[in-house]
């Protein structure tokens, strides 16, 4: 099939950037979306033009690197699917596709479709861990954890840190990402000792990074490729309130 692509091109962080139109031909159904972009890039290189820069690595929906907004929707229209896992059988000949980077103040564009998501790492540094240093821990089966809680923790732990939730939110809020981590630990006994401190510190860092607040639009949940539920946000809000009221230090 033949497609018309409008792609965001931006040389570097300071460049203003603009949409540029390309055509690709010979796209087949079994290709993934990123393989379709590979076809375009191969063509650009042969013509001596710079290929379109985009982040990607595993191409299996797990590393969280890929980060494209397709026709206005982060990761595209396929539910619970990263863009690297979207296949071209969902498009038809003659389609026009708009491809843009994540747009958020806290995710500045580095080049073309590549953005800087280091803010997420800094939020994790503020509290996204259990302070268990290597060695000297009890036997893994010493503390039974109900399967229900373990499964819940796993549901939230499945977050791949892609940032689509931020890109989808009109406030560019990172609540879903932060709440997923907070909730994972909240469901596990290992997470309890630092529970209050964690939520306060992570939220403080989130604010410091310039992410917006949550106004319950739930766009984040709609685009999340791992189906992280907004119930996490409610849990985090409760924890945050509780922690703020009691002395967390």
């Amino acid at each position: 099939m033949k497609l018309k692509l409008h792609i965001w091109r931006q040389k570097h962080a300071q460049d203003k950037g603009k949409m540029v139109t390309y055509e690709v031909d010979g796209i087949i159904e079994d290709m993934s979306f990123l393989e379709m972009l590979d076809v375009l890039n191969e063509k650009l290189i042969v013509n001596g033009e710079e290929p379109v820069a985009f982040d990607h690595d595993c191409r299996e929906g797990i590393c969280g690197a890929c980060s494209l907004t397709i026709n206005g929707i982060p990761h595209g229209f396929e539910k619970e699917t990263t863009i690297c896992q979207l296949h071209m059988r969902h498009f038809k000949d003659g389609d026009t596709i708009y491809i843009e980077p994540w747009r958020a103040r806290a995710f500045p564009v580095i080049k073309d479709l590549v953005v800087d998501r280091a803010a997420f790492d800094r939020i994790m540094q503020a509290g996204g861990f259990v302070s268990a240093h290597t060695g000297g821990v009890p036997d893994a089966n010493a503390t039974p954890i109900s399967k229900i809680d373990a499964d819940k923790a796993m549901d939230y732990a499945a977050c791949i840190g892609c940032g689509a939730c931020v890109a989808a939110c009109k406030n560019a809020s990172a609540m879903l990402f932060v709440a997923a981590k907070v909730s994972q630990y909240a469901y596990l006994p290992q997470g309890q000792p630092e529970r209050k401190k964690r939520v306060l510190n992570m939220v403080a860092q989130m604010d410091a990074e310039g992410f917006g607040g949550c106004t319950n639009q739930y766009e984040c949940e709609a685009v999340c490729p791992k189906g992280i539920s907004v119930a996490a946000i409610a849990l985090m809000n409760r924890d945050f309130l509780k922690a703020s009221l009691t002395d967390a230090s």
């Binding site: 259990v130 290597t134 039974p144 954890i145 399967k147 373990a150 796993m154 732990a157 994972q184 290992q190």
Partner: peptide
């Protein structure tokens, strides 16, 4: 042991 202490949510049986 280390991973469980870190909060890695390994699969569990109903008994926990």
């Amino acid at each position: 042991d280390q991973c469980v202490a870190q909060g890695v949510p390994f699969a569990r049986e109903y008994g926990g």
